[in-house]
Amino acid sequence: MNCEVALILDKKYEQLQNISDDPLSQTSQVFEKSLQYVKRFSRYKNSETVKQVREYPSFQTVLSRNRLAEFELCVLGNLCPETVEEAIAMVPTIKTKGRFEDDDAIEKMLHDLSLIKKFE
């Protein structure tokens, strides 16, 4: 997820800062741009919350039972859809048979995820 990348890149940036006074000259443009991007678009602020989202029970059960792929999880985590329709438009595969019983189940998941964000 974007927020995890932000954590990794930030740490690396700090390390570079310790080594030299001008860390930006050491890094590539790709690194710089990516860092700006993930900082702008990361939804969760600290590593605790990220962990909570990753370990969200229905993700875990869905991951094990129905193989909700990691990238599907990441898209949901990155974009934080608010409605079921939105979520299905972003990740069409979540409505594949057997993943969730019905729309209510998806809605519950989205609601729980937004709660995690609220209480971080």
């Binding site: 890094t27 790709v30 690194f31």
Partner: peptide, 16 residues
């Protein structure tokens, strides 16, 4: 490798 790009893997942002 940092900053390079290939069709298969995309951009290499950082070596961890």
């Amino acid at each position: 490798v940092e900053g390079t790009c290939s069709g298969k893997h995309g951009f290499v942002v950082a070596v961890t």
